[in-house]
Computed example of a mutant assay.
Amino acid sequence: MTQRMKEIADEIVGLQAELDREIERRRRALGWTLSEKIGEFEMGVAAQHRRLRLNLVKFFGRTSPAVVLTAPVIYSLIIPLLLVDVWVSAYQAICFRAYGIPRVQRRDYIALDRDRLGYLNVIERLNCTFCGYANGVIGYVREVASRTEQYWCPIKHAVKVTDPHRRYYEFLEFGDAEGYRARLNDFRARLRDDTPPAAPN
């Protein structure tokens, strides 16, 4: 990683911190706080939410037939998602333990908290639970895959990759054969220590 690339990466981290502060300000404006990973609303806000909940008759009256007809296709994804979830959990339990790689904490990726929102009816809560699980599993699998990639092949691709995982930016440049041979063990050691790879001097 060049010095300029490191500067840009540091700017991104700074912007992320600024975004997090702005999100926290918005939370306060909406009348809620996070307590032990549970969103809690002020009493008046919670009552207002309940008043905004659509009953099922109104909800289905506003739902297009296309949405109703495609819902089974969407929900059929639960089967492959469950299989991937279980398989990846078994994979990292076996392989990461063998390689000395810290295991990914599944609970850090799968958030199922939207069912506490008073303005959602039972169907909307089910939809939100499905989406939270689906995206959480994908995030969890992505982190397991990124640790695997750092262990076996921490090399950037020749072509541009859309939205690469967070470890990717620290990987070796495509074609850096000497760097690969010289630094592969460093990438593995840093992964075992659960620290990001160091940029070359």
Rank of each mutant, 00 (worst) to 15 (best):
K37V: 15
I38V: 14
G39N: 12
E40Y: 10
F41G: 03
V45F: 07
A46N: 02
A46S: 06
Q48S: 02
R51W: 07
L52P: 09
L56D: 02
K58N: 12
P65K: 02
V67T: 06
V67H: 04
V68Y: 03
V68M: 11
T70K: 07
T70Q: 08
A71S: 12
P72Y: 14
P72T: 10
I74G: 07
V84K: 05
V88F: 05
A90R: 12
Y91L: 09
I94S: 06
C95W: 15
F96G: 06
R97I: 04
R97T: 12
R97V: 05
A98G: 02
Y99P: 06
P102R: 00
R103W: 06
R103Y: 04
V104S: 05
Q105Y: 13
R106M: 08
R106L: 11
R107D: 00
R107L: 04
R107M: 04
Y109M: 01
I110L: 01
L112E: 01
L112T: 04
D115Y: 14
L117W: 10
L117N: 07
Y119D: 11
Y119V: 09
V122T: 10
E124A: 08
E124Y: 12
R125Q: 13
R125D: 11
L126I: 00
L126T: 03
N127W: 13
T129C: 10
T129N: 05
F130N: 06
C131N: 11
G132E: 00
Y133A: 00
Y133E: 00
Y133S: 00
N135L: 06
N135G: 06
G136H: 09
V137K: 01
V137A: 05
G139I: 02
V141C: 03
V141N: 02
R142C: 12
E143L: 03
E143K: 01
V144I: 11
V144T: 08
A145S: 05
A145V: 14
E149A: 13
Q150S: 10
P154Q: 00
H157D: 15
